[in-house]
Write a protein that binds this DNA or RNA. Structure first.
Lengths: 145, 145
DNA sequence: CTTTATTGGTTACAAATGTAACTGTTGATT
DNA sequence: AATCAACAGTTACATTTGTAACCAATAAAG
């Protein structure tokens, strides 16, 4: 079709990555969306708070590499759903310390288990060494340090 | 933080895939967005038409695993920008045969080259065998056949 | 001090997306 | 032929996202 030597889009890494990511995310999303009515960013905030404990929105934003408005909205929604609480830091009243409620912690425990299970169903189809390499490569794509 | 053994979100495959995909897509997007004002789906349609020649919207939709409304919108926009033309198939007037205009072909040639280059800058940081494995795994995640 | 720049977080608006209902056309069933 | 289901593509509406301007609080510079 082109006068050039064709480069196959089906081999293009950003394309493959996108499709794979979309596929997995949708699969897993069905779990937390149906059970807790959560959005992707919401569940990520929960995950970060669950894992690292008390954080500010900015911390989460940096760790999750997600824009602060997205985090802001997710935090509001999670607060409304009573999954987290926030209190202004008395030492710097710009910041807010976020933490999971009891309810939020339960959700985290459940989702974290679901994530582990889902991760296994994926990785089970490959050799351990392959999976390790995959993770390593993905990390290096994310942070080309 | 949790009473359970922690599963690290930073190791969760859907999460890693998402971040890697987002990173690469944004990088590459800056090229076609700035130069041609295209959106992701638009450039994918161009790529498919450039590679496979004449197709219907449905064909593209299936190949690209993208919802038909998204394709429909992209096609409209590409037509408006004079990158493709469509004509109703006389044998089945429901379908429309899409094909790139001369202008669209030029864009394809350019983007295809850019994609190849970008793909190289990524893959150059890994061994060939590693890249091959990465692609293989991604494909199998996309199509768990 | 007081002005100025920076920071954490929010809001407002535009642009993009998902979902479902819709149109027109073909194919199948009777 | 007449009815009904299926299909390609579009449209309309609600939800989600990106962008940039914004507010309040702090930090830095004069």
């Amino acid at each position: 079709m082109s006068k050039n030597v064709d480069f196959d889009i089906a081999e293009f890494l950003p394309y493959l990555l996108n499709q794979a990511a979309e596929q997995c995310s949708l699969d897993f999303q069905s779990y937390y969306k149906e059970k807790y009515g959560m959005l992707r960013t919401e569940w990520r905030v929960v995950f970060h708070l669950g894992k690292y404990g008390l954080m500010t929105a900015r911390d989460v934003s940096l760790k999750a590499k997600t824009h602060k408005t997205k985090i802001s909205r997710a935090v509001h929604e999670l607060e409304r759903k009573d999954f987290l609480v926030r209190e202004t830091d008395p030492n710097d009243r710009r910041q807010e310390r976020l933490s999971l409620t009891t309810r939020g912690k339960k959700v985290y425990d459940d989702l974290q288990r679901a994530a582990r299970d889902y991760d296994r169903t994926i990785t089970d189809t490959f050799k351990d060494s392959e999976v390790a390499l995959l993770r390593k490569m993905l990390k290096s794509l994310i942070d080309p340090a």
